[in-house]
Write a protein that binds this DNA or RNA. Structure first.
Length: 309
DNA sequence: AGACTAACCTGAAAGC
DNA sequence: TGCTTTCAGGTTAGTC
């Protein structure tokens, strides 16, 4: 999704709804910055829909902990701590995770019209009302910020050995799946193929944008009933899903969910996007008009000719 | 169990 | 110009 920000000194700003690739790139970027650094200060906004674990408990129990690992399951991130507890993070739709000192932090400041005191301009970030969790580390005074305007994101602290229903019900990670996994899951399912792809208990990590792109590449109609899919179609869908996701990770273009390009250059995804949000435009393959319809409360974009079945 | 829908939330964009 | 409505989307909870 690309939003125009006329007030900013460049043409456009790429803002991505975080799906698997964005979460994975975020993980890779944050990993080396977080490991082995003790949490010296924790601040939060007040109790809200955003916090599965009450913020007061987060402030109390995260203090003094040291991250030992950062892993990803589907669109979830799991920050493992030195006492065996785990912090589960989900970016929802508008979640942004960033570390002080990142270029995007300063650009975010610019977007919001915030001017920092000179001594804070290099590494500082002033949390606003949408910055719900800040972990400040002992050395170098740097911090991890979790900002989320719409609060569809989630934070949950799991005690050592505590399981998470949210994680437990995830299906196989979309990057690790095989066509046979999708085929098996599609049996007995009369829902549209697009709906099945978005089901996190089937393939974890697929969101609306990549689902549309993958089905276009695979040449499968989004409305085709899942239980009518043949094994070959499932192979093609999974291969296409992985292709678009790996490509996105590889370019790192839109990378971190709030990634903002200083020169106004568009994120790579926008350039490679073939159907998503291209309603009414010509199909890049056959020239037909790209259609849009709503499936499972999600806008779905497809080429009626290339995806006839 | 599977299918379907409303709700959560905010800000940009469109409509009037 | 300014107010109102619509829309976007990941996930959960609730109903049928």
């Amino acid at each position: 999704m690309q939003l125009s920000r006329p007030g900013f000194g460049c043409e456009s700003v790429g803002i991505h709804v975080p799906e698997l690739p964005e979460v994975e790139v975020t993980r890779r970027e944050l990993l080396p910055k977080l490991l082995g650094r003790r949490i010296a200060e924790v601040s939060t906004t007040r109790k809200s829909y955003f916090f599965i674990t009450p913020p007061a408990r987060l402030r109390r129990e995260l203090l003094g902990r040291t991250p030992t690992q950062l892993t990803r399951f589907g669109k979830y991130l799991l920050l493992e701590l030195d006492d065996g507890a785990r912090l589960l993070l989900h970016l929802g739709m508008t979640g942004q995770l960033f570390f002080s000192g990142d270029p995007s932090v300063r650009l975010l400041q610019a977007l919001r019209g915030v001017t920092l005191a000179p001594e804070r301009q290099e590494t500082g970030f002033t949390p606003d009302a949408h910055t719900h969790l800040v972990l400040s580390f002992a050395d170098a005074g740097q911090s991890l910020y979790f900002r989320d305007v719409r609060k569809f994101g989630k934070v949950e602290l799991l005690a050592p050995q505590q399981s998470s229903p949210r994680l437990d019900k995830l299906g196989i990670d979309a990057l690790l799946a095989k066509g046979s996994d999708l085929y098996a899951a599609s049996r007995g399912r009369s829902v549209a193929t697009k709906t099945l792809l978005l089901d996190q208990s089937v393939l974890a990590g697929v969101g609306n944008i990549y689902a549309d792109e993958a089905l276009f590449i695979a040449g499968v109609s989004p409305v085709r009933r899942a239980n009518r899919l043949k094994p070959e179609a499932c192979d093609a869908i999974v291969a296409a899903t992985q292709r678009v996701m790996l490509r996105s990770i590889e370019t790192g273009g839109s990378s971190i969910s709030d990634y903002v390009r200083p020169d106004g250059e568009r994120g790579s995804y926008q350039d490679e996007r073939q159907v998503y949000s291209r309603t009414g435009q010509a199909c890049v393959r056959c020239g037909s008009v790209i259609k849009r319809r709503v499936l499972g409360q999600r806008s779905t974009h497809y080429c009626p000719k290339c995806q006839a079945r």
